[in-house]
Simulated assay, not measured.
Amino acid sequence: MKITVNELRHDTCYFFYKQIRTIFFISIFIAFINLIIDIFVKPNIYIISIIENNNFINAHALLELINSMNLEEKHELLKYSIFKIIESLMSKTVLLGSIIILISSVSNSEKKTIITSICSLFSFLPSLFILNFLSTIIIQIGFMLFIIPGVLLSITLSLSPIIFSFKKHGLIDSIRLSISISWRYIKIISPCILTWMFSKFILTVFLDHIHFLNKNILDLISNVSMNILFSILIIYLFRFYMIFLRS
């Protein structure tokens, strides 16, 4: 069976509009939890103000800032960085797991109760978190080397959670298969990844220029929008892999 971008785009839009209420609920719920965590679990206020009020043009400027800090401030900065990384990974993992379970249920015509869906999600999350952690490290190393390797790694590793969700392959095998399949079908997978990245960039720039709204409201809008964009990406990739298995 031939896989085309137009077919995948059509299937993605159809599924999204059919499940739009559920996807919005999941996106808003996860964004709201993030906002609550950010409000009530705050590291050192001084460190946060430095990070939020400084636009680092390059790594040299950031290194200069770190070198000017005392030991206690460096320790607080490290705690803040670890906190944000874990929060981001957990949010991504829960969103990814939720959307995958939603697609699987609808695709298999299963009518799961909320309790059953939650149990399926939580049994799936620990392994998915490890997979996300490994993929994120590999992708970030690529971006540290240069932008193009980072983008290529983002494309080639994008299928790994989808492959893993079918429970036929382990973590490493899912990553290996993702690289192999994504590279073979890079002309089909790369448009959605690049569109997702570009959309995130445009949204971030747009929201950064809005100053009449409360920061917490802006953060909520940003998180919900990012979650919806990521959900659309997962739907596209999941549909691609389903067609790939049938071909």
Results as ranks from 00 to 15, higher is better:
residue 216 N to V: 05
residue 239 R to V: 03
residue 81 S to D: 02
residue 37 I to L: 13
residue 182 S to Y: 03
residue 83 F to T: 09
residue 205 V to I: 06
residue 82 I to E: 03
residue 121 L to K: 03
residue 34 N to Q: 12
residue 54 N to R: 14
residue 105 S to V: 06
residue 127 S to K: 05
residue 212 F to D: 10
residue 161 P to L: 06
residue 129 F to W: 08
residue 197 M to I: 15
residue 180 S to A: 04
residue 31 A to C: 08
residue 98 S to Q: 07
residue 192 C to H: 09
residue 13 C to K: 13
residue 82 I to H: 05
residue 128 L to W: 04
residue 61 A to Q: 15
residue 189 I to N: 00
residue 94 V to K: 09
residue 232 I to Q: 06
residue 95 L to N: 02
residue 207 L to W: 01
residue 245 L to T: 08
residue 180 S to I: 08
residue 60 H to Q: 12
residue 227 N to H: 10
residue 19 Q to D: 14
residue 112 K to M: 11
residue 126 P to Q: 04
residue 211 H to P: 06
residue 157 L to I: 10
residue 97 G to N: 04
residue 178 S to A: 02
residue 30 I to M: 11
residue 62 L to W: 11
residue 4 T to I: 07
residue 18 K to H: 15
residue 153 L to V: 04
residue 225 S to D: 06
residue 39 I to F: 13
residue 128 L to C: 03
residue 245 L to V: 05
residue 110 E to K: 13
residue 80 Y to W: 09
residue 151 V to Y: 10
residue 208 D to F: 07
residue 184 R to F: 03
residue 147 I to V: 15
residue 199 S to K: 11
residue 11 D to G: 09
residue 133 F to I: 01
residue 35 L to K: 14
residue 205 V to M: 05
residue 129 F to Q: 08
residue 34 N to H: 09
residue 33 I to G: 02
residue 63 L to G: 10
residue 164 F to N: 01
residue 170 G to H: 07
residue 88 S to I: 07
residue 134 L to E: 00
residue 39 I to N: 11
residue 237 L to N: 11
residue 216 N to P: 07
residue 54 N to G: 02
residue 31 A to E: 03
residue 90 M to Y: 11
residue 39 I to G: 07
residue 150 G to F: 04
residue 178 S to D: 02
residue 29 F to C: 13
residue 132 N to V: 07
residue 58 N to A: 08
residue 92 K to S: 14
residue 14 Y to T: 15
residue 74 K to E: 06
residue 143 F to V: 04
residue 247 S to W: 07
residue 191 P to N: 14
residue 123 S to N: 14
residue 208 D to V: 00
residue 42 K to A: 10
residue 99 I to N: 02
residue 218 L to W: 03
residue 114 I to G: 01
residue 28 I to G: 06
residue 107 S to R: 13
residue 115 I to Q: 05
residue 243 I to F: 10
residue 21 R to Q: 12
residue 132 N to P: 04
residue 112 K to S: 08
residue 157 L to F: 12
